[in-house]
Computed example of a mutant assay.
Amino acid sequence: MGRFLIGQYGAFDPLKFGRDYRKGFFGIEACLLQTDEDIAALRQAAIEHSFQVGIHFPLRDRGVVIRDALFLSQDSEERSDAYRRIQEELDSIKMLKLNPAYILFHYPKPVILDDRVNWSTWHFSDRREYAYERDYSFEVFELRTEELFQWLTDQSKIYGFVPVLEFDALNRYVYDSEFLEKLLQKYPAVRLCLDTGRLYLQERRDPFFKSIPLMRRYAKYAEVIHLWNLQYNDGFVKLRYPVLPEQLPQEGWAPIAEYLHIIREENPDVKIQFEHRSDLVSEVELERCYCWVSDLLTDHN
Rank of each mutant, 00 (worst) to 15 (best):
D299S: 11
W122A: 14
F71R: 01
I28A: 07
G2Q: 08
I47P: 00
P242A: 01
P213W: 03
G7T: 15
D168N: 13
G54A: 08
L248F: 10
I47K: 14
L296R: 06
A257D: 15
L72K: 01
P14D: 15
Q247F: 10
A40K: 10
D299Y: 09
L244K: 03
E142L: 12
G252D: 12
T196N: 04
S282Q: 11
E89C: 02
G160P: 05
F124P: 10
V140K: 12
V190A: 05
E29D: 02
I86D: 00
E133Q: 14
I6F: 03
G197E: 13
I112D: 00
D38V: 06
R217I: 00
I86C: 03
F167I: 05
T121C: 13
F179Y: 11
S73D: 00
W228A: 10
E251T: 11
A131D: 12
G2L: 06
N229D: 15
G252M: 07
N99C: 13
E133R: 14
D81Q: 13
C193Y: 01
F236S: 09
S211F: 06
F236T: 11
Y290A: 05
F105P: 06
Y136D: 02
D234A: 08
G24C: 05
V293S: 07
Q44R: 15
F17W: 03
L239Q: 12
I66S: 09
P100H: 01
Q74W: 03
D154N: 13
A254N: 14
L42S: 01
Y221G: 01
I212T: 05
T121N: 14
G54W: 03
K94E: 15
L260N: 07
